[in-house]
Design a protein around this nucleic acid. Structure first.
Lengths: 108, 108
DNA sequence: TCGTTGCATTGACACACTTCGATATTGCGG
DNA sequence: CCGCAATATCGAAGTGTGTCAATGCAACGA
């Protein structure tokens, strides 16, 4: 029986960090939160999320914490309310994680 | 007590499809598979993945099926072996899913 | 036809994730 | 100081995901 192919080079990287970042984004509600922050280009109050999303307040807070831990959003407390905004470079970081895996090899 | 903010517009989209696509990508082993296919710019035999990844053969087959169901890779059987290649537009589709959420609002 | 090899599928298990109710924390107004 | 309102955290329930051993299926060679 013939060989199946030339040995084939397997990508060496672990992609652990990229997977973590993408997992933080791979949820419809979190995507909607991010889209809101991105289109707002400004801070958004948590109360707006709890009012608009079909989720209870603790669940919204949980998703916001995941995004915060991933470094994709930043929060600031002003009085009783907490405002979230997109972290600088959030889009670039996620795009880079995607490109690290799916971008074709660059010829030297 | 003062109002927290101007009402704030929440993104209406559901982002269900984007989340599904990103979930298919948000795994270190699947990212490595995709990176291998992207850098190979050619088809890769399944046997190369089972040999290089720290996973058993059924697990590799499972990840390949997920990527196939997501439309990110295509497979072709030739004799005993099965070869996988990156589906055309895979990078664009994932990038678009990311941009749909994180790209800032485009001014009209 | 028969055995072997490569890959896919099935069933089961352990773990992580999403969601919620209950409770704690923080800050404001009275 | 006390009560209230806005968020955060905790604990539990239900669901999904990654992994493997066992098995099935397809193609090749003898």
């Amino acid at each position: 029986m013939q060989r199946c192919c030339p040995p084939a080079e397997i990508a060496p990287h672990a992609f652990g960090g990229a997977a973590e970042l993408l997992k933080a984004v791979a949820d419809p509600h979190r995507l909607r939160i991010l889209a809101t922050l991105a289109s707002a280009r400004d801070e958004v109050c948590v109360c707006d999320f709890t009012a608009a999303l079909p989720l209870n307040q603790p669940t919204v807070s949980h998703h916001l914490k995941l995004l915060r831990d991933a470094g994709l959003v930043a929060s600031e407390r002003r009085g009783t309310w907490v405002y979230y905004r997109l972290a600088p470079g959030a889009h670039e970081r996620v795009s880079a994680a995607v490109a690290a895996a799916l971008a074709p090899a660059v010829p030297a």
